[in-house]
Amino acid sequence: MFNAIFDMLSYPFMQRALAVGILVSLCAALLGVSLVLRRYSMIGDGLSHVGFGALAIAAVANLAPLKVAIPVVVIAAFFLLRLSEDSRLKGDSAIAVISTSALAFGVLILSVGGGVNTDVYNYMFGSIYAMSEDDVVLSLSLSFIVLVLFILFYNRIFSVTFDETFARAGGIRVNAYTMLTAVLTAITIVLGMRMMGAMLISALIIFPALTAMRVFKTFRAVTIAAALIAIVSFAVGITLSYLFDAPGGATVVLVNLGAMLLFSCIGAIGKRK
């Protein structure tokens, strides 16, 4: 088995997939802690579907995928947050409207533009062959930015996440932090979605935070644990998918689910003592 793993690491496409995947998982997990606790988890799902629509346009128009998808998804992030904050519209149904429309739009464009079914499949469920050198560079810079911002603003992020009103009263610009989180989330999703798939990428945001919360009870511990769980789950998932020739994105999500079940058990046992 170790030989097979060494084998795997010798392929450049696997090296890229691992590098991008680990970095994207790390960013998604850090952003996810705040998003999940503020009940914004569905935004990740909405954004990935919008990303799918944008990738479809890029594919048909023969443009560079990221150059189209990143601005489109960032703009969508602004909109989704506005919708969630507007009490007159129900946030969750608004997200559902936008995400299903974007998905339908993407499928239609792809089928009109040449009926490439493999493209649809790859965008929806991901492909580990999709990562280029550029993606590696971009994920490196993104994760560096996310990490630095997260550490610098850690105390403010906690304050905003725990109690928005109190943070506002203390002079924290809550909306600016929410926007920043949304923009970074949008970029993370676009980077990861061609590998993980539009239908599956939001798992990277939601699972690690939920898993960590089963066992850990302070914000700091949850944050650190979520980051580690995300990295380990991705590495294990992608290795399993290589060894058993299984689809990468789906395997990673199921490993994340396994980790959540495991942590739920540990949490339940810990509580009984």
């Binding site: 606790l37 105390n155 725990f162 002079g171």
Partner: peptide, 23 residues
């Protein structure tokens, strides 16, 4: 808020966040 009912944070973390306005 209803969010705080299942929020993972220690008492120390919550109390310390009161200093946020002094930043």
């Amino acid at each position: 808020t209803h969010l705080q009912k299942d929020f993972p944070a220690s008492v120390r973390e919550v109390v310390l966040s009161g200093c946020i306005g002094r930043f």
